[in-house]
Simulated scan of single mutants.
Amino acid sequence: MLLLNGNPLTWISPTALGSLGNLRLLDLSNCGPLPDLTLQGAHSLILDNSQLKYLDIRGTVMKLQARDNQLTNIRFADKSSVTELDLHNNSLTTDDIPFILMGMWRLQRLDLSNNLIHKFPGAGSDNTSELFLLPNLMHVNLSANLLQRLHFDSPFPWARLTHLDLSYNRLSPYGLPERAINEAFNLQSLHIQGNGITYFRPTTSKKSYSALKEVAFYDNKYKPEVYKNITKFFRDLKVIVLEKTQQDLPSNDSLKEDCAHFIEKSQTLPPKKEIQVHPVEEIIVKNNEGFWNTWNIFLLGILMTSLTVNAVQIRQRYRLRGRHVIPRETPISSMETMFVRDEEMLN
């Protein structure tokens, strides 16, 4: 066992671990950044959260866990040895799937959740003239992708499946292979919540659902009565029907809708609430209002008085026009000079 997790490794030589022929577990999680990594292999490899983009395994690996990376390209020298493959939260697309999975005859557990897969290739997909089949697959997790349809001729051995998770994709009303699911006699867990499914017709065969333990149908587009009938059917079979909780992850569509709703909401924010005035402050404000009203009346009175005085002075000026005879030789004050000039201007 070699545990190197949590180290700031940025490069590992392809031959660095070549002499460890009996390596059972190699842990390189939370290292990196390791964008390009080439390994000789081990029984179990843990490569979580190391910023991987390209991975080349030149030896044998049985269990590979490379979650929370940015993988777009993976090469296996010996695909037939892989039994468990966990590639949750990477950047894998539809075209990458056949290249990675074809030839994994012993694969039992597959987790491709939270990737960029629009369509899961069918069993007839041809790549290097091989038939795309996964005959030993039992546990499949394709949740949180972009799947719109899952075909009946997918490489899954439906009669062998025990767990199937298709939640939070974009499955349409006709995107779910009901016939295949009804023939999955060993199915114990079925999760199809968070899609666009409008109906689901369970079979009434006694052999069907005999192993089923839990199902989840919520967050779809059922009518209320349809959803009620579906859940009642499975509850009558003593199957646990899971309902939505706060811990459930939303679908990609609902995330977009929430973002759009947030933007719309931010653009139409309600007006700010007025500041509430404390009762004591409110009294002061009222007193100030009364003070300003009194002051305005006082100013208005002064203005009226000033206008009245000005009017009286103007009348006296007109009465005294021409009566002031001031000899030019007599010295006069500045005020008298201004008065004489005013009289001359009036005349």
Rank of each mutant, 00 (worst) to 15 (best):
L2W: 01
N5T: 07
N5D: 15
N5R: 14
G6Q: 07
L9I: 12
T10V: 13
T10Q: 14
W11K: 10
I12V: 11
L17E: 04
L17T: 02
R24A: 03
D27C: 04
D27F: 06
L28F: 04
L34T: 02
L34Q: 06
P35G: 04
D36P: 02
L45Q: 00
I46E: 10
I46A: 09
L52H: 04
Y54G: 15
I57V: 14
R58L: 13
V61Q: 00
K63R: 08
Q65K: 14
R67N: 12
D68A: 10
N69I: 00
N73W: 10
N73Q: 10
A77C: 05
S80P: 07
S80L: 09
S80C: 07
L85H: 01
D86V: 06
D86N: 09
N90M: 02
N90K: 03
S91C: 05
T94Q: 11
D96A: 15
I97P: 00
G103M: 01
W105H: 12
R109L: 04
L116A: 15
F120G: 00
P121K: 03
A123L: 09
A123C: 08
S129D: 14
F132S: 05
P135W: 00
P135S: 02
M138T: 13
V140L: 11
A144N: 15
N145G: 13
N145E: 06
H151F: 10
F156A: 01
P157L: 09
L164T: 01
L166K: 02
L171W: 06
P173C: 02
P177R: 04
E178P: 01
A180N: 01
N182Y: 01
E183R: 12
E183A: 08
F185P: 13
L187P: 01
Q188G: 10
N195T: 12
Y199M: 02
F200M: 01
P202A: 07
P202L: 05
T203M: 02
T203A: 02
T204W: 03
E214F: 04
F217I: 11
Y218K: 06
D219Y: 01
D219V: 00
P224L: 14
V226I: 08
V226M: 10
K228F: 14
T231C: 10
K232I: 13
F233R: 12
F233C: 10
K238M: 15
V239P: 11
V239W: 00
I240S: 13
V241K: 11
L242I: 09
D248W: 08
P250A: 08
D258P: 00
C259N: 09
E264K: 14
K265C: 14
L269M: 09
K272P: 06
I275P: 03
P279N: 01
P279T: 02
P279C: 02
V280I: 15
V280H: 12
E281D: 09
V285Q: 15
W292H: 03
W292R: 00
N293D: 08
L300K: 13
S306P: 03
V312K: 06
Q313P: 02
R315C: 07
R315M: 09
R317Y: 14
Y318P: 00
R321Y: 07
R323Y: 15
P327T: 03
T330Q: 14
P331S: 07
S334A: 09
M335W: 13
E336A: 05
T337R: 15
M338R: 08
F339R: 09
V340T: 10
E344S: 15
N347C: 12
N347Y: 13
